[in-house]
Design a protein around this nucleic acid. Structure first.
Length: 404
DNA sequence: AAATCGGGGGA
DNA sequence: TCCCCAGATTT
């Protein structure tokens, strides 16, 4: 099977997914030897042998008990890996249990409505993951006979699955010898190797994928890959790593150089953009205005109340005072006549990736126009509780329900 | 190579 | 406040 599209920049392009470097241990592969990213020598074969033994032994008695570890079938491992993308373990656990309870099998997930899937995802963020998960389940149902595939290329072809997730799923669920590289292991490896560069940079990334592959034992690759992440999460932490408790302290170049807390080199962070939004909870005789957010918008697929960017509105009408501008915009945009001034309910400060948002939430009473403008429709508060909402909308709603 | 996509937890 | 989290996808 050939890929019709590239999944990500690090994805191997050849049919054989992972480039084999014969006996690369001891002497670094050319790709590594040719750069000066390491403060130390590339590890020897003996180093790799001792590392594998020590970390696997540590993992046997130190692994956390997690729901997806009880029964590591491909479906559960896959689901856990998608939920864990850029999301902490503690956050995922309850979502995972609820999700498995609601959709016990891939087929049941595939046959579900996307709205139901999104509802189960509500609050977890990165909602594209949920839509991709649902689409992938349908692909498994339709293209793979309902059986989660067990070859790297097929797994990689599923939407939402990149090189990390494909390797993680197949190693954890099937003990396949495939490397992983993610947040924990970028940091762990940067320290083990004393990587004198940002591990997320282009050159470092390829070096670290090679290292991740060289690390793999011949068997127990699932436990081994998990042990790397577990160690990174619990011992080799971003701040104040617990080096005195580390089972592979003797393997750590950063520790030997007394630089563990100085590495990895952190990349420059893009600064936040401030943003001022206004939300309108529009109600009339028990009916509330909502719309489903479109593809390409934030929270695509989720439902939301009327929401505007105050700065953009201000640009189009500079002369009037802020409240009046917003009100005029509201009337023009939604085709409604306000019976009263919007009443401020609450202000929510939140963040969406690199945006810091102040959200002023207003309540207004207005009659729904005959033809719903801008894709709005009206629903009862009861129906509202069933729709997948973004966190701020849900927060506002629960505040309103509480005060009435 | 860089931007985009949420939300929460912890210091 | 800031940093980080078992990343993938698009531009």
């Amino acid at each position: 099977m050939s890929l019709s599209k590239r999944k990500n920049a690090t994805q191997p392009k050849s049919k054989k997914p992972i480039t084999k470097v014969a006996s690369s241990q001891g002497t670094a592969p050319a790709s590594i030897r040719s750069n000066a990213h390491l403060l130390n020598e590339y590890p020897s074969a003996d180093w790799f042998k001792k590392f594998r033994k020590a970390i696997l032994k540590w993992y046997e008695s130190n692994q956390r008990r997690l729901p997806w570890r009880d029964d590591p079938i491909p479906y559960k491992v896959w689901l856990s890996e998608i939920m864990l993308q850029q999301t902490q373990v503690a956050t995922v656990v309850d979502y995972f249990n609820r999700f498995i309870n609601k959709f016990p099998t891939i087929i049941e997930l595939a046959n579900a409505d996307e709205q139901t899937v999104l509802s189960m995802w509500e609050g977890l963020g990165y909602y594209r993951r949920a839509r991709n998960l649902h689409a992938a389940a349908q692909k498994v149902r339709d293209d793979f006979g309902g059986i989660f595939p067990d070859d790297f290329e097929s797994v990689l072809s599923l939407p939402g699955v990149g090189r990390y997730s494909a390797g993680a799923i197949l190693s954890i669920a099937g003990d396949q010898k495939l490397p992983i590289l993610e947040g924990n292991t970028y940091r762990l490896h940067a320290r083990l190797l004393a990587l004198h560069d940002d591990p997320r940079s282009r050159g470092s990334e390829s070096l670290l994928w090679q290292f991740a592959e060289d690390l793999l034992p011949t068997k127990k690759c699932g436990a081994f890959n998990q042990s790397l992440m577990e160690l990174g999460s619990e011992i080799c932490k971003p701040k104040k790593p617990l080096c005195q408790c580390c089972p592979v302290i003797k393997n750590c170049a950063a520790n030997q150089l007394d630089m563990a807390d100085k590495l990895p080199i952190k990349s420059k962070r893009r600064k936040f953009v401030r943003r001022h939004d206004a939300l309108f909870f529009i109600e009339n005789r028990g009916q509330v205005w909502v719309r489903q957010r479109k593809q390409g918008e934030w929270w695509a697929g989720l439902w939301d109340f009327a929401r505007f960017n105050v700065s953009e509105v201000a640009e189009t009408a500079e002369k009037s005072p802020p409240n009046e501008r917003l009100q005029n915009h509201l009337e023009a945009e939604l085709g409604i006549q306000l019976k009263s001034h919007p009443k401020i309910l609450m202000t929510i400060n939140h963040a969406v990736t690199h945006h810091k948002i102040r959200l002023d939430c207003y309540w207004i009473k207005a009659k729904f126009p005959d033809a719903g403008k801008q894709g709005f429709k009206q629903v009862t508060r009861n129906e509202l509780s069933e729709l997948p909402l973004n966190v701020t909308a849900r927060k506002l709603l629960s505040m309103i329900e509480k005060s009435c």
